[in-house]
Amino acid sequence: MLKAELRRLMLARRRALPAEELAARSAQVAAQLFSGFDVAAWRTVHVFLPLQRRQELDTWPIIRRLWAEQPGTRVVVPLVEADGTLTQRLLTPDTPLVESAWGIPEPLGAPQIKPAELDAVLLPLLAFDEQGQRVGYGKGFYDRFLLDCPQARRIGLSLEPPGPRIEDAWPGDVPLHACVTPERVWHFGPTAGGQ
Rank of each mutant, 00 (worst) to 15 (best):
M1S: 15
L2Q: 15
A4V: 14
L9G: 07
L11C: 12
A12N: 10
R13P: 03
R13Y: 08
R14D: 08
R14M: 07
R15P: 06
L17V: 07
E21W: 02
L22A: 08
Q32E: 13
F34W: 08
G36M: 06
G36W: 05
F37W: 11
D38C: 08
A41C: 13
A41N: 11
V45R: 00
V47S: 03
L49S: 04
P50K: 11
Q55K: 15
E56G: 03
L57A: 03
D58Y: 03
I63D: 04
I63L: 13
R65Y: 08
W67E: 11
E69N: 08
Q70N: 12
V77C: 08
V77Y: 00
L79P: 01
L79E: 11
V80L: 15
T85N: 09
P96M: 09
E106K: 05
P107F: 02
G109W: 03
P111R: 02
Q112S: 07
I113Y: 01
I113C: 05
K114Y: 05
A116N: 02
A120E: 01
L123T: 04
D129R: 02
Q131A: 15
G132N: 05
R134A: 05
R134L: 10
R134S: 09
Y137I: 04
G138F: 08
G138V: 10
G138N: 10
D143S: 12
L146I: 06
L146Y: 05
D148C: 13
C149N: 13
P150K: 13
P150V: 06
Q151Y: 06
Q151S: 07
G156N: 02
G156Q: 03
L157R: 00
L157K: 01
L157A: 02
E160T: 11
P161Q: 02
G163K: 01
G163V: 02
P164F: 03
I166L: 10
I166H: 01
E167A: 15
W170G: 10
D173Q: 03
D173I: 06
P175I: 08
H177N: 14
V180A: 02
T181R: 01
P182R: 06
P182I: 12
R184C: 10
W186M: 12
W186C: 15
P190Y: 14
G193T: 06
G194N: 14
Q195Y: 15
